[in-house]
Design a protein around this nucleic acid. Sequence first.
RNA 1: GUGGCCGUAGCUCAGCUCGGUUAGAGCGCCUGGUUGUGGUCCAGGAGGUCGCGGGUUCAAAUCCCGUCGGCCACCCCA
Length: 444
Amino acid sequence: MNDRRIIQPRTLKGFRDFLPDAMQSREWLIDTARAVFRSHGYVPIDTPALEYTEILLGKGGAETDKQLYRFEDNGGRDVALRFDLTVPLARFVAQHFGELGVPFKRYHVGPVWRGENTQRGRYREFLQCDFDTIGTESLAADTEAALVIHDIFAALDIGEFTIHLNNRLVLAGLLSELELAEHTADVLRSIDKLPKIGRDAVAGELRELVGASPAQADRLLAALTVTGTNEEVLARVAELAGGAADAGVAALTEVVAGLAAAGVAPSRARVDLSIARGLDYYTGTVFETFLAEIPEIGSVCSGGRYDDLASIYTKQRLPGVGASLGVDRLLAALEEIGKLDTSDAGPSILMTMFDGSRSADYVGVAASLRRGGLSVELYPEARKLGSQLKYADRKGHRLAVIIGGDEWSAGTAQVKDMVSGDSQTVELGTLEETCHRLLGTTPR
RNA sequence: GUGGCCGUAGCUCAGCUCGGUUAGAGCGCCUGGUUGUGGUCCAGGAGGUCGCGGGUUCAAAUCCCGUCGGCCACCCCA
């Protein structure tokens, strides 16, 4: 009778369930970002999770190839799950270019999949939250991208943060001045490790990997680690690159000036020449964002400018600039530094049920309160009042409305303040007004 | 993908080194004390395939192998 085989409930490595608390944090984060995107004129899009493999493999090297969830569908098509939102955006823009017009500014929030090894804050299914401006080379778009990042982190109110800005043209200028240009990719990857393994180790790696002389490595690292105000750093690097980095310096100068004009504190937007970003499609501005309280978790929002988003899907040249908010990494960081507000913002009123045979009446009162702009949860059964109040307490409701036999016959309702424990009895006709007054909200 | 650590109640963990009676604790949950009032207190209770599978043994949470999952480093990146 009871020997029915139970399938063990489990989830795949790197895939997770989200319980209500975790999900509320995710929604808070995404809602905040979404509001900022909209305020700057970005519009939402979505694309399929599954694409033809040739679409996804068009760009990207052997690394993405390995990480791809790829299989043959029931119709014999070679398909794969998207591993980021940028490649689908490229396909999307190439395919719908005629209907979109430029500049095209979109944001996209959705899961992506990578079959790589897991770690804290790194999963096989994770959420990306991207925004990009396509079809303009104006640096105003770069400035805006940085400003969007700034506005999101300011709105989240999770402590201080710094957006590190650099420009690939500066790095390219330095590398050509130092005659290391042909090893750009390797050098950049090495530079990215600077904060992690330190200056000496990077110098060593440069010598081994690309055969840089100690003098070359020294000069490069000296330029990259220049400190000072944004203006000082820019002036110094222009000097060190001997004019080869002028275009990049000018671009960075303009972006920094724009951010200052927008009221961004200098401490929140810093020129940092050691920010390289391994991704090779960036060609101009690059940014990474670090939280002051937990910089070691890495960048929680990164991006940059690229010359041509979709060259493999269309002959239309599509320059752009954008960034990606690392939702899962950011949430992991906030959890660690105790900045996650787990108090839920659910309904503020619990309508208790006293007499199951009158459930329609309770539904009616709750509905009328909601029509007045209140958030009301109706307890679904006439359980012991103590249990219902306990439930209200656990769910974080601020008020409990109690209507029992006495109240029904008197045409009244009891309103209990869950924080103070005080309760008062009011006419049913003034219940809505009383709730609004106690909650400090205004009637609709 | 390579290497290391780990996996016991819903959660945090003890027990494992040197196999041996009904596997424990705190918190949480449920019930009662308070027949219509939560958060405190008191009493009681439910809840465990010791991740899963196999092996050694008279006997395995404990030893061995495999596997799944988590964490960490490398790699790469969000």
